[in-house]
Design a protein around this nucleic acid. Sequence first.
DNA 1: AAAAGCCCCTGGATGC
DNA 2: TGCATCCAGGGGCTTT
Length: 271
Amino acid sequence: MPELPEVEVTRISFADRIAGAQIVEARMGKPLRWPLNCPPNALAGMHVLAVRRRGKYLLLDLDQGLLLVHLGMSGSLSFMLEPPAPGKHDHFELRTSQGVLRLNDPRRFGAVVFAANEVDPVAQRLLGKLGMEPLDDGFDAKLFHQGLARRKAPIKQVLLAGDVVVGVGNIYASEVLFLAGIRPSTPASRLSRPRAARLHQAIRDVLTRAVERGGSTLRDFSNAQGEAGHFQLDAMVYARDGLPCKVCNAPIRTMRQGQRSTFFCGQCQNA
DNA sequence: AAAAGCCCCTGGATGC
DNA sequence: TGCATCCAGGGGCTTT
């Protein structure tokens, strides 16, 4: 579910409120994608200094380490002063001096992992091969083009892979390619410098707007204050199979790429 | 080295 | 109503 905008919106919605808090107690429910690699008790007493994001990972900086949180497909966080009793799908919880951070994740593709710091092998295994941050100044159009140049796979799948640029998931990959006028099946290496530059700009535009709109809520996403997002209403192609293109009226088409659905306009995206 | 497939898991929507 | 099937916002791992 959560792509970069949803993760960033989540981060913004609780980072300031949890900063400075001391962890009173941590508890795990059912196992997530990876087991928490330390006893939950070991986190007690530590302080949360800040919350950062790298790709789709949330990084909780602690005074004695780093907690990496991934929301997988169906995860969402909440941060509340007085939360209700844990539900069936609440699988991780940090009780702190400033509120309770809780991870709800029905499918349990999410994860919470502890590392000593960012260069710890545990962290590097997850973060080491991530590509450029699309909303950072370091996301350079020329570097982006160079990254695409050595990949022959379809551009949609190169975007999803996250080793050239991070954070673009299944919704935003379709949206970004529509905005850039690029067919999702085009081999990444076949994009000219100007077309790669156009895609580079589309990624920045779409992700920025999606963050401003509070992310996309397809079924159950909400930020840490329980608020849904609205970007799905702005989607030009995602989940619009058969509906008229908002630009040219041609029916939006769908196809499967790497076991995932892709949506595109055959008219607006013709190369 | 890169690409393609598989799989982890639960739940909602759809079809018979 | 019940049951089977398909699909869903991710991504690491294994196989080609």
